[in-house]
Design a protein around this nucleic acid. Structure first.
Length: 589
RNA sequence: GGACCUGUAGCUUAAUUGGAUAGAGCACCUGACUACGGAUCAGGAGGUUAGGGGUUCGACUCCCUUCAGGUCCA
């Protein structure tokens, strides 16, 4: 809507002899209870006009009508100048832009960006919290790619540490040689079970020690199992053959399980990083920081950074014994990523419990003078909670990702069969459809909410398939495809439509026209929710139009073609934007 | 002790970043050409935007404060 901005700047200059910038003008969509498409907020301009908001609006409105062919009329209500666009203009943008196959697809901008997401621990299966992470990361990557970025999707796997030793130890002690093959269990599930077993046995030992008179704290430290796990970690670090081999075997089970879940979710990665490769990184950065005077040493030889002038604390970056803390390796990994891909922006999709960590991490890299530090971004999202509170793997109160997906697909199957709409589908087509709908409902449910908000999920209340949902949008797409397929011809071109556009047609054209702006905003804000809500609005407008205006039943060929073309553009934009959310849309459902 | 996030209708949520009478969906109530696909559409009811104060032409949005839930730092 640049021409409105330009026109208003000109109007202000001509009428009030004052130069203003386009950014000084507030534009918004006209509310649907008023006529018009675009609204200029004139309150701020009264200062220049020295007139009432109404007079100012009228004067600018008249200027625009007489100087811009795109503007057909206007009305003023209080400080709001509602602009009615001309039908010629709407039809022109429709024909020249909206009907194009590649409408809304951004040109490559030559910039590279990395999106790191998923980043699981290898000691337990994926749960609903990971699902939110995966969908967010994947979708943001799709959106950035649509905006024209070259995107590298990365997964930093936490494959080492005390947690995986716990699973390994429990398997060694209690596993009796179980494997995914022998049990028929998914590998990540099998390993996760042993993590739970470790915790159970560990707790038993703690209770025994407490019964012998030890304090809770001491008991936790002295339990034989935890000591064995620690020894195992040391052996791992020393490269002990037996431990390493067990570690490789069990991790390979987990990866096979993860891959299955990733496939079902439809997410993928271009680059895997493993902490077993990166956990020793970062120590040279510590040296660098000491040399530059950014870090300082305490008496015990530990290395710190003072962030009190930034309103934060002093932060430990290396222990006194020379071993790393989390942030040490994150400093190193950040540099490694930059060296590997030379990206302009590096996005970390990580829960908001790590807000402080990333704030500190980015700040340190900036203080070290890393040129790329300004491109680091923490895409922080809220935790997924159950009505009973937080999900806890060790206590078994998690919504398992695989279970959830299966339940969603089952529900989709049941709903679809009830509606009896699958005649003519092969069995394979049916399964594909149920997957599309079940996952569509799940993905949309999780992505329509602003990332930083916490999400409450009640396993007892199923996710809706009606209203503001994925299936609603999928249904709209199928419905449009059905109409188009019923048309007896394929060429929907038209010259004059022979009557004036209805309000639902105008709204639909304007909504389609907005699509590229929505992608840009979503890319800038790193927010799939913007795309999700936009797509819903578009689908809703189409359904309204569909009910109000006949398409195949109209007499005039030109008008029919316009409405068919409008339908086709809508279907195309729905399909594209759902793809940005990782959701497929069916031809029939 | 310090810092951060969240709080909008019974429930799930939106609000173009300071603009109009806070907009949707679910659930509830009423209705829709004898379905170009009813997983739809139209309408009704439902709000002190957690509470209080401030900033200004205007505040869900910014500032202060209290409350509730959650998280992080040593």
């Amino acid at each position: 809507m640049d021409f409105i901005l330009k026109g208003t700047v000109e109007a202000v200059k001509a009428l009030y002899n004052t130069e203003i910038k386009e950014s000084d003008i507030a534009l918004q969509e006209t509310r649907k209870e008023f006529d018009g498409e675009i609204t200029v907020v004139t309150f701020p301009l009264t200062r220049l006009s020295r007139k009432t908001p109404e007079q100012t609006g009228n004067e600018i409105g008249e200027y625009l009508v007489s100087h811009l062919s795109e503007v057909a009329g206007f009305s003023v209500i209080k400080g709001f100048l509602n602009i009615v666009l001309s039908e010629e203009f709407l039809l022109k943008i429709f024909k020249e832009q909206l009907v194009k196959e590649n409408f809304g697809e951004g040109q490559p901008n030559g910039k590279k960006v990395m999106v790191e997401y998923s980043s699981p621990n290898t000691n337990k299966p994926l749960h609903l919290g990971h699902v939110r992470n995966n969908l967010l990361g994947f979708s943001v990557a799709e959106i950035l790619s649509a905006e024209g970025f070259e995107v590298v999707k990365a997964n930093l796997v936490n494959d080492r540490g005390i947690h995986i030793c716990k699973s390994m130890l429990a398997w060694q002690k209690f596993g009796q040689g179980e494997t995914p093959e022998s049990t028929g269990l998914k590998g990540d599930k099998l390993v996760g079970n042993y993590y739970v077993i470790f915790d159970k046995e560990y707790k038993k030992e703690i209770e025994e020690l407490k019964a012998q008179g030890q304090s809770e704290e001491d008991a936790k430290k002295n339990a034989p199992l935890i000591n064995e796990a620690r020894q195992m970690l040391q052996k791992w670090e020393a490269g002990d053959e037996g431990v390493i081999s067990l570690w490789k075997t069990m991790n390979s089970w987990v990866y096979a399980g993860f891959d299955e879940t990733y496939n079902k979710l439809g997410v993928s990665f271009d680059k895997y990083y493993y902490e077993s490769d990166t956990y020793l990184l970062g120590k040279d950065i510590i040296e660098e920081g000491l040399e530059k005077g950014v870090f300082f040493k305490k008496e015990d030889n530990s290395v710190w950074i003072d962030l009190t002038t930034e309103g934060l604390d002093e932060k430990l970056v290396l222990r006194g014994d020379g071993t790393s803390v989390y942030i040490t390796q994150d400093l190193g990994t950040a540099e490694l990523k930059y060296k590997d891909f030379n990206v302009e922006e590096s996005i970390y999709v990580v829960g908001n419990e790590q807000d402080y960590h990333f704030k500190v991490l980015f700040l340190i890299l900036d203080k070290l003078g890393k040129s790329w530090a300004k491109g680091l971004y923490h895409l922080s999202y809220g935790m997924v909670d159950l009505p009973s509170g937080k999900m806890k793997s060790r206590e078994g109160t998690v919504v398992d990702a695989d279970d959830l997906i299966r339940e969603m697909v089952d529900t989709a199957r049941k709903r679809t069969e009830e509606l009896g709409k699958t005649e003519g589908f092969s069995d394979a087509e049916k399964e594909h459809l149920y997957n599309m709908i079940g996952l569509g409902a799940l993905k949309y449910f999780l992505l329509k909410v602003e990332p930083k908000k916490r999400l409450l999920f009640d396993p007892n209340e199923s996710i809706d398939f009606q209203g503001h949902t994925g299936p609603f949008i999928q249904y709209t797409h199928a419905r449009i495809r059905s109409v188009i397929n019923k048309a007896s011809h394929k060429d929907f071109s038209f010259s004059e439509i022979g009557s004036s556009l209805s309000s639902s047609e105008r709204e639909l054209v304007m909504s389609l026209y907005k699509y590229p702006e929505v992608i840009s905003a979503a890319a800038k804000e790193h927010s799939p929710a913007l795309v999700a809500n936009y797509t819903y609005e578009l689908a809703k407008l189409y359904n309204k139009f569909y009910h109000e205006e006949p398409i195949l039943k109209v007499e005039e060929q030109q008008l029919m073609n316009f409405r068919l073309a409008l339908s086709q553009s809508t279907a195309s934009v729905i399909k594209k934007s759902m793809k940005l959310l990782g959701i497929e849309v069916p031809e029939k459902m």
